[in-house]
Design a binder for these strands. Structure first.
Length: 808
RNA sequence: GGGCGCGUAGCUCAGCGGUAGAGCACCUGUCUUACACACAGGCGGUCGCCGGUUCGAGACCGGCCGCGCCCACCA
């Protein structure tokens, strides 16, 4: 393909060019990769994205869900960011004082794991380094890799307020963490207890319920016999998929009404391996219909058994250490890994003749650590918890009574199901990277919570709790900790609660519910529960949940599958605008979207189309000026202006409903099918070949206006091309700070619409006819070549009718 | 076991009461002075199945089949 070189110095246009040609201000073609960076730079330098809390404009605020500080953005983030950027850019143009607050998350487990892996490669461990040195090393890593995300966000065009960027472990946020911890501790909402928690032997740490994912696993169901081997003597058969836990059994349970076992309840049976006598107890929990109707009870290693152990005051011996090896059973299995022990114990029981029936393969659901992948082990340990019942009820109420609205509505049951059935949240992690628990223990068993402005107790025997807080504890404070809470800053005053939260539906539980719990609690505790309007307490008025990104075959993108798309590579190939538009166009609330290269190509083509359309305008001297009186306009002009009004109105409705996908679709088709395919062609006729038709001057203004408005409408989704084209067209500073289009207020002219529709039908018919005849298909060319430089469409229509007849 | 959602052109998806749509793919033309990252024309669907409501149903109701996701303490 050859294309004429750009006419580089626009001031010295060749003599052949029309006197109206203003196209010199545009580059020869749209080259996104080469131009986007400079545009972004200019926006930031101009301070367009910096919020001014002192302004008197209405506020619109969004906080960015903080990505992992050492991570990199994937396409899902790009979707997130595109939606937020589109919303904030539009609101800015509408005259709001916009704050889009960026930042990153310290991502406790993930970040620590990366650095530990690096250490492992050098043959050391964090324990070799010691806590302080290790944490220093993590900070080094954070500083070194933390720029990746920022760079990616600049590429995407995110209009965030960089001057307010935050990090969950920075000083201010740490202060917020300590403050709320101290308040909740004082209120009894944070407590320490020995509980059965999900334990990751790989991390050697507790994890919360939602960090466990269940997967069906083929295991073995072993039926084993407690008591005598003589059928005439007392015995009970129980079944288990984790035989090794029998080493920690302290009871066998049956249903109270089960006649088969009534005579055994209250007696004891000998443990076949430890030799201890364990009681047979009766409890309603046992389902007599299931299996043999008898269950082995391991209180320290199974949640149900733990509860039963509490009800019946059973001993709760732990039989595994932090790495998942058998310990303190006093048997030869001590020191064995849990999976090795599973086999060894089964073999031992078989040798004793205690494995009844055959061992059956058994498909059952096993909890795995989401982060590290290995099966979790329920383990009894001393941990810190948040008492969630009151907090989660408030969070649920906020949605129930409409202070916060979830979009789409269909996601609400999922939210309620979670907040209404929440277990207490285990917040302590046996890690080193994170907010250390602000609790100090004294030599005489004292426990002191140290607030942000207090000095920790010192002296012999005092020490701080070694654990750190779950990462989601600090991210749960994000909407207000980032604005300076607990200080009463101007930012909080102006921008909290935030206007809208945008995120994927997969983190409702991790994040959304917790922000609501914390936000409500923090704001109420600020005022002692009075003073403040409850509406001010929720962290956001709207929650917009988008779907997950899948590949062209509808599969989830993942590193292991290798089907992930790197947003940077995509932007290199198609441009940031195309990537953004592709994601936005697929963003139907709450539902997943599949994307592939062909979608990005279509979006890139659309950007090029806009470029060329604007170029046509500039070639013909289109200017964005005051529109002439409507009475003097042609049918085509009146029609396109009416359409423009309608599209502006329709787009606003969709955007306010967060129907970004449909809004994008609307603009795409309006721009392409109506503006480019019809209006531009009609405008050419009205301009005339030499630009000297009587209708030409008005057409230049209408054409300029249509392009101007169209570019402003598209700017939130495609900021880069629209900036380049709009500034060229209007010769104004930047479309970022242009005003948002509103309908003209004119009544639509149905006659014009009808006449254009008739014309379209006519031309289409003519084209079809000519195609059938194997003639040149272009009616518009025919029209012009036939000398139909019409002053209006009525004569044009007549002429086309004549022409159509002629061609027959 | 509970919750949510989905099954519409080859693929990805809109449409949610009134004569079947888009993008991509495919076929046929066309370098027409904004654009071949384009233009024009075309092929292609008994809208998962069965009932019902209605003058009229992808669209509303009931049932069924298939698929996906989330939650849940099935020994």
């Amino acid at each position: 393909m050859t294309r004429p070189a750009p006419q580089s110095p626009p001031t010295t246009a060749p003599s052949a060019a029309s006197p109206h040609d203003r196209s010199g201000v545009l580059p020869a073609q749209w080259d996104p990769a080469a131009m986007e960076g400079a545009l972004y730079q200019r926006w930031v330098q101009a301070g367009y994205f910096t919020a001014n809390p002192a302004s008197d404009k209405p506020a619109f605020s969004v906080v960015l869900p903080p990505p992992n500080v050492t991570g990199s953005l994937h396409l899902g983030h790009a979707l997130d960011h595109t939606l937020m950027d589109a919303m904030t850019r539009r609101k800015r143009m509408q005259g709001y004082e916009v704050l889009w607050l960026p930042g990153t998350d310290h991502a406790g487990i993930a970040t620590q794991a990366v650095v530990e892996k690096q250490l492992a490669a050098n043959g050391t461990t964090r324990h070799d380094l010691g806590r302080e040195l290790f944490v220093d090393k993590v900070w080094d890593w954070v500083r070194q890799s933390g720029d990746t995300v920022r760079g990616q966000m600049r590429r995407l065009g995110d209009g965030v307020d960089w001057s307010r960027e935050r990090f969950t472990l920075d000083e201010g946020l740490s202060r917020a963490v300590q403050t709320i911890f101290a308040r909740m501790y004082a209120d009894g909402l944070i407590y320490r207890a020995e509980r059965l928690v999900n334990w990751s032997p790989v991390l050697q740490s507790a994890i919360s319920d939602i960090e466990v994912t269940f997967a069906d696993v083929e295991g073995e169901l072993v039926s084993l016999r407690y008591g005598s081997l003589d059928d005439a003597e007392p015995h009970v058969v129980v079944a288990t998929t984790r035989v090794e836990t029998m080493l920690g059994d302290t009871a066998v349970a049956v249903h109270p009404d089960d006649p088969r076992y009534a005579h055994l309840v209250g007696t004891t049976l000998e443990h076949p391996i430890t030799g201890r006598q364990i009681p047979v107890i009766a409890d309603d929990y046992v389902d007599p219909e299931f299996g043999t109707g008898a269950v082995k009870i391991t209180p320290a290693h199974d949640p149900n058994d733990f509860e039963m152990g509490r009800r019946h005051n059973l001993a709760m011996p732990s039989i595994m250490d932090t790495t998942g090896c058998i310990t303190s059973t006093g048997t030869r299995f001590d020191g064995m890994d849990r999976f090795a022990a599973r086999v060894a114990v089964r073999e031992e029981l078989a040798r004793q003749g205690r494995v009844v029936k055959e061992v059956r393969p058994y498909l059952h659901s096993v909890g795995h650590s989401e982060r590290t992948g290995e099966p979790i082990e329920p383990r009894l340990s001393l941990q810190w918890f948040v008492a969630t019942s009151g907090l989660s009820r408030s969070a649920g109420d906020a949605v129930r009574d409409g202070r916060t609205t979830i979009h789409p509505r269909s996601q609400e049951p999922r939210f309620f199901g979670w907040v209404d059935n929440m277990h207490d949240w285990c917040i302590s992690r046996q890690l080193w990277w994170g907010h250390r628990i602000p609790i100090w223990y004294g030599p005489d068993g004292e426990t002191v919570c140290v607030g942000p402005d207090e000095t920790p107790p010192s002296g012999d025997g005092w020490f701080q709790d070694p654990d750190v807080l779950d990462t989601w504890f600090s991210s749960g404070l994000w909407p207000f900790s980032t604005m300076g809470w607990p200080e009463r800053t101007l930012e909080l005053e102006r921008f909290y609660p935030t206007s809208v939260l945008v995120t994927g539906y997969d983190i409702i539980f991790f994040w959304v519910a917790r922000m609501m719990m914390f936000g409500l609690y923090a704001m109420e505790s600020d005022t002692g529960g009075d003073g403040r309007n409850p509406e001010q307490s929720v962290p956001f008025g709207d929650v917009v949940l988008h779907g997950l990104i899948r590949d062209a075959e509808g599969r989830k993108m993942s590193k292991s599958r290798g089907n992930g798309i790197d947003p940077i590579e995509w932007m290199d190939t198609f441009g940031a605008d195309a990537v953004r538009f592709t994601l936005a166009r697929g963003a139907n609330p709450g539902s997943d979207l599949s994307v592939g290269d062909e979608h990005a190509q279509a979006s890139r083509n659309f950007a090029t189309k806009l470029f060329n359309a604007t170029r046509l305008g500039l070639l013909n001297g289109a200017v964005a000026g005051r529109l002439p009186e409507r009475d003097g306009l042609t049918v085509a002009d009146r029609w396109i202006l009416d359409r423009l009004d309608a599209v502006v109105a329709e787009h606003d409705v969709l955007a306010e409903r967060y129907e970004i996908g449909k809004a994008a679709e609307l603009l795409y088709h309006f721009a392409w099918d109506e503006v480019c395919d019809w209006y531009l062609e009609l405008a050419k006729v009205q301009l005339g070949r030499d630009g000297d038709e009587p209708t030409a001057p008005a057409t230049r203004v209408v054409l300029g206006h249509v392009l101007d408005v169209l570019l402003r409408l598209l700017h939130p989704l495609m900021p880069f091309v629209t900036e380049t084209l709009w500034t060229a067209l209007t010769e104004q500073e930047s479309v970022v700070v242009a005003s948002w289009p509103c309908p003209s207020g004119h009544d639509p002219d149905p006659t014009a619409a009808q006449q254009v529709a008739d014309l379209q039908a006519l031309v289409t018919e003519l084209r079809r006819f000519r195609a059938d005849q194997g003639l040149r298909p272009s009616a518009r060319v025919a029209a012009r070549v036939s000398g139909l430089g019409a002053a209006d469409l009525e004569p044009l229509t007549d002429a086309l009718v004549a022409l159509a007849r002629l061609t027959e």
